[in-house]
């Protein structure tokens, strides 16, 4: 059992928890994820390890409450426990050793960018982060990323930072100075847009994919994605891939596989604490 040590709602539908997982906290590397299962009958959910405290033995998970499973997960209170956390899974991020990196985070993807920026910062890489949300209250991990380098905040409505999408800010940043690599994590259209920006510039771009997953160890093949014309499994071959090679259309399609069933499950989830994230 993994006891939740602290919990904070960091945007209207995003919750950050610190939870006991000492072994994972000790060995996790940027880009890796865990599979979380709340308890009996619950789904196995892949979540990126956003941060870790090896001394205390906790990992930080950032959960966007979108369906029944995630809403029930964020309804857990500090002191309550998650039954299963397995990991760390996935290949660690391919980190450059020097130079300058642009980290672009959209929405909850900003939490996935954070450990990458941490890894880069620890190696002495100059990190510039561009993060965004639809308005001020949707911006997450700003202070965490500010400790690691420059942060450019964007909001769709201009209520905070620069008005516009992260891709607009990324375009300007790439025009203003050279970057050795770009890391982009967020909604699929955002990652696709960043990859389209950097392709003509020839800047290596890494994206983190979040396809539907069950076991997370390569056993089911449900998370298959096409990268460079090859069928790969995000859980063992990724989750990070060359953004210029990813078939984003296919990823989008496959992410919608259970949409109707998920809506059905969510509509049945009438537990009071389970309304978080329902707008």
């Amino acid at each position: 059992m993994h006891v939740i040590r602290s919990k904070a709602q960091i945007s209207p539908n995003v919750t950050r928890i610190e939870v006991d997982a000492p072994r994972i906290a000790a060995i996790r590397q940027p880009g890796q994820f865990v599979i979380v299962r709340r308890g009996d009958g619950a789904e196995r959910i892949p979540l990126t390890i956003a941060d870790a405290d090896p001394q205390v033995g906790t990992i930080t998970l950032v959960i966007q409450a979108v369906g029944k499973s995630t809403r029930e997960l964020v309804a857990l209170q500090p002191g309550e426990a998650i039954a299963d956390i397995a990991g760390p899974l996935g290949k660690p991020t391919e980190l450059i050793e020097s130079g300058r990196a642009l980290c672009v985070g959209g929405g909850v993807g900003t939490a996935v960018v954070h450990p990458i920026a941490q890894g880069l910062h620890a190696r002495g890489v100059d990190v510039v982060s561009i993060i965004g949300g639809r308005s001020k209250e949707w911006v997450i991990f700003e202070s965490d990323l500010k400790r690691l380098g420059e942060v450019i905040v964007c909001t769709d409505d201009g209520s905070y930072g620069r008005k516009g999408f992260v891709t607009d800010a990324a375009r300007d940043a790439l025009a203003a100075r050279p970057f050795n690599v770009v890391y982009a994590v967020g909604p699929v259209p955002m990652m696709r847009a960043v990859a389209s920006l950097t392709r003509p510039l020839g800047v290596h771009t890494i994206v983190s994919l979040n396809p539907v997953m069950v076991d997370g160890t390569g056993m089911c093949g449900g998370c298959r994605v096409v990268v460079g014309g090859q069928n790969l499994f995000a859980c063992v071959d990724g989750p990070e891939f060359d953004g210029h090679q990813v078939d984003f259309d296919l990823l989008m399609e496959r992410l919608g596989t259970y949409r109707e069933l998920e809506q059905e499950a969510a509509s049945r989830c009438d537990n009071g604490s389970c309304k978080i994230g329902l707008k």
Binding site: G41, A42, E43, R44, K68, S69, V214, D215, M219, C220, T257, Y258, L261, E262, E264, A265, R268
Partner: peptide, 19 residues
């Protein structure tokens, strides 16, 4: 795996779906 381990035959009582 969906049907056996995750009990998707019992969806939506179990959380994991199967088509």
């Amino acid at each position: 795996t969906r049907v056996n381990l995750m009990a998707a035959y019992d969806f939506p009582r179990a959380d994991t779906p199967v088509l």
